[in-house]
Design a protein around this nucleic acid. Structure first.
Length: 738
DNA sequence: AGCACGCCGACT
DNA sequence: GTCGGCGTGCTC
């Protein structure tokens, strides 16, 4: 009876996905034993007018509630019979909510796939599997005459010692049916989980560097550590990952692998599937809601061994956590750029600490922050310097184009170099980080330019579609035939984009095949894969493209890489620009060459003496990073200082400024003098998509001082009267100041 | 974020 | 006389 009274006075604190930095108290449902409600379960609760799905954080006694008991409403339904998030998962999410000053309910929501966010049941549809029958084991694939698809599939089954999940066989539907009808394979249920996880095919023999990296991480399994694996292109980073994963798998541990770009996931997935006899799931934006739910639950329940995913996969619960790998750790796509602006790299490290597992960060061009953490002995540096087959590093050349005649951005020296490379039957890769035909259209008569009406930016000419397009807000219009201002002047393209370069290259090299890879040519699903296939099979001579060339794909037959316009990257206001540019140069350079064909990298510049370029090229990435870090130390910039950026936008220029003024007053009143309050200033792009944008930068030499100030100020700032009229957000550890 | 309530312009 | 504009205020 006494117990019953205690139960009756319990209230449940729930995180609800609304932009409010607080929890909501509810009474337990009438018919339910409150003891059965556990933190980490989802509940459906009446909220305002409707129902919302929230997550139970804790149960407390009624007397602890700050809320008038008359206002308390009752939980409508407890959705889960068991907690979906463990206490450690909840601990991480609470930490992230505090650190990023983002509402806990919304942070929780990012931890769930959409289906669970919407309150759908957490029921895992177990995979059907297929495996060989005795007859299937004894059939020789060649005997299946005139059925090459069936031959291939039977071979696939015979190569694997275990059942194959139906979800992995979707491309083989008809052959599958045929083999089943012939009695060579049969359907089984969830057989995969009964098999021990292990390596299926042996890896390569590691060189001493690789062995050291493997041993170092493997010996640390079961405890927290951060290792930075710095490996140049072709140094076998993935092989090191796989050997470490193999060891973790053999101990029954799960591995979370985070990647920056989904375009890289299929390659890695394929290699992993060939290598490991263990269930692998993927989690990224190309997967639909039910696929993501399936992958998430398989990890949460311990059926899957490896998850390959992007940033959003970071919070997936792990039944038996063993290791977190974050590949291409320098990539800025690990930082979420809207809403809950977390850094997947930093949160992965916080998560590993809570879970007591190692984190492995990999990159050929580590972030300066991570390199600094190596010197502070927070991370262990594991270097891979030997390229496969002892391939030589590419040779860099600064090509001075001052006063040189240019043909659509190509100097004569470069054209000659391209020609002689093509003559040798080798491929050329040209990099220009600007898509479209030309970045702006100008009137030769009156000076009118194709300005975007909603942004402080110009509209880009897309010649093939005959349209002007703003790359910042997406607005577009047909390419004007006459000048909208003077009606008489001649309209001309100004500047260069990949589309224009492609045209010029086609004129210069009419007998060579050119492939352009940018957002415009690869938007259609599978088109990128198609182009990559063409490149690898030697059907392309010149590869031209943007950013996406710098990521992952290696082109062994490319021996000449040219970066057409390096100068525009040299004069940015953002202190990260040098780091990003150096990473881009090294990454693009890494696409080229192999053992028998040394790569050459040409940088066209009007700044051949620029210290950024000369240091990078003469002394290398590491030396460049050291110098840049010295400069940041002197300026108190990250990682020697800690920043937070308060961003605001509004329909007019006044409301955002009034909000920031009020925020400055709050901050000044609370600042113990340890934190610099810089601004308010207009954002680097003062207007975007019709919104007026301003920002306020906070910087402190000590992380704790900055966060102490934020802890005190943010509750007040979010309650400011002026906050209602604008859209604002706080970006802790901002990576790009736009 | 939603979704209410709440006071001032052009419409059946 | 109403329908509806989006300004402010609340959500356990």
């Amino acid at each position: 009876m006494a117990n019953c009274n205690v139960s009756r006075s319990l209230i449940v604190q729930i995180a609800i996905p609304v932009p409010l930095q607080r929890l909501f108290d509810y009474l337990p449902p009438e018919q339910t034993d409150p003891q059965s409600i556990q933190p980490g379960m989802r509940v459906s609760v009446p909220f305002g007018k409707g129902l919302k799905t929230g997550v139970v954080l804790q149960l407390t006694s009624l007397s602890d509630s700050q809320i008038d008991p008359k206002k308390l409403r009752r939980i409508e339904q407890v959705v889960d019979s068991e907690a979906l998030l463990s206490p450690k998962d909840l601990q991480l999410l609470k930490w992230a909510s505090r650190y990023y000053h983002h509402p806990l309910g919304e942070v929780m929501a990012t931890a769930f796939p959409a289906a669970l966010r919407q309150g759908k049941p957490a029921i895992l549809q177990r995979d059907y599997c297929y495996s060989l029958t005795e007859q299937g084991r004894q059939t020789i694939p060649m005997d299946l005459k005139r059925a090459s698809k069936q031959q291939a599939l039977l071979t696939l089954f015979q190569d694997k010692p275990f059942a194959i999940a139906a979800t992995e066989l979707t491309q083989h539907k008809t052959a599958l049916k045929a083999l089943q009808d012939k009695g060579l394979i049969h359907k089984t249920l969830g057989e995969d989980s009964k098999l021990a996880w292990k390596e299926q095919s042996a890896g390569l023999t590691p060189n001493p560097e690789q062995q050291h990296a493997i041993d170092s991480v493997v010996s640390g399994l079961g405890q927290f550590s951060v290792s930075l694996l710095q490996g140049v292109t072709g140094s076998g980073k993935t092989e090191v990952y796989m050997q470490i994963i193999a060891e973790a798998l053999s101990r029954g541990l799960q591995i979370l692998v985070l990647l920056p770009e989904i375009t890289l996931t299929p390659q890695l997935e394929q290699r992993f599937r060939q290598r490991f006899a263990a269930p692998i799931v993927c989690f990224h934006s190309k997967f639909n809601d039910s696929q993501r739910l399936h992958a998430w639950l398989n990890m949460q329940q311990g059926h899957a061994a490896i998850m390959l995913g992007t940033r959003s996969a970071l919070f997936t619960p792990l039944k038996n956590p063993g290791l977190i790998i974050l590949d291409e750790e320098h990539d800025s796509s690990f930082k979420q750029q809207e809403g809950f602006r977390f850094s997947a790299r930093d949160v992965a490290i916080a998560r590993a600490k809570i879970l007591n597992v190692p984190v492995l960060l990999g990159s050929a061009t580590p972030s300066f922050e991570s390199l600094f953490n190596v010197t502070r002995q927070r991370y262990q540096l594991l270097q891979l310097s030997i390229r496969a087959g002892n391939a030589a590093d590419p040779v860099f050349q600064l090509l001075d184009i001052r006063n040189k005649p240019m043909q659509a951005g190509l100097s004569e020296a470069l054209i000659t170099a391209i020609r002689s490379t093509l003559d040798k039957g080798q491929q050329v890769l040209l990099f220009l980080n600007r898509r479209g035909f030309a970045p702006v259209q100008i009137c030769h008569g009156c000076g009118w330019v194709s300005r975007c009406g909603r942004c402080d930016a110009n509209m880009v000419i897309h010649a093939a579609e005959r349209r002007l397009r703003c790359h910042h807000c997406g607005s577009e219009q047909p390419l004007p035939k006459e000048c909208p201002a003077c009606k008489t002047g001649e309209l001309q393209p100004l500047g260069l984009g990949t589309e224009r370069i492609e045209q010029t290259l086609a004129e210069l090299f009419p007998n060579n095949a050119i492939i352009r890879l940018d957002k415009d040519t690869t938007q259609r699903k599978g088109s990128l894969e198609g182009y990559l296939e063409q490149i690898h099979s030697g059907q392309a001579d010149i590869i031209l493209g943007t950013q996406m060339l710098a990521k992952g794909h290696h082109f062994p037959d490319v021996t000449l890489v040219a970066i057409l316009d390096i100068d525009s990257g040299l004069f940015s206001v953002d202190f990260h620009a040098g780091e990003k540019l150096a990473q881009m140069i090294v990454q693009v350079a890494g696409r080229a060459g192999r053992a028998d064909k040394r790569g050459r990298v040409v940088l066209q510049t009007r700044q051949p003496q620029h210290p950024l370029l000369t240091t990078l090229i003469e002394k290398g990435y590491q030396a460049f990073a050291e110098i840049a870090l010295q400069e940041r130390r002197q300026a108190g910039l990250p990682p020697f200082g800690y920043q937070a950026l308060l961003r605001v936008q509004g329909n007019n220029a006044e409301s955002p400024q009034q909000f920031l003024q009020a925020a400055v007053s709050v901050l000044h009143a609370l600042n113990a003098g340890k934190t610099q309050i810089l601004g308010p200033v207009t954002a680097p792009m003062a207007r975007r998509a019709g919104q007026f944008r301003f920002q306020l930068l906070l910087q402190s030499p000590q992380r704790k001082d900055l966060h102490q100030l934020l802890d005190q100020a943010m509750p007040k700032i979010s309650k400011l009267r002026q906050a209602g009229k604008v859209r604002w957000s706080l970006d802790v550890d901002p990576v790009d100041l736009y």
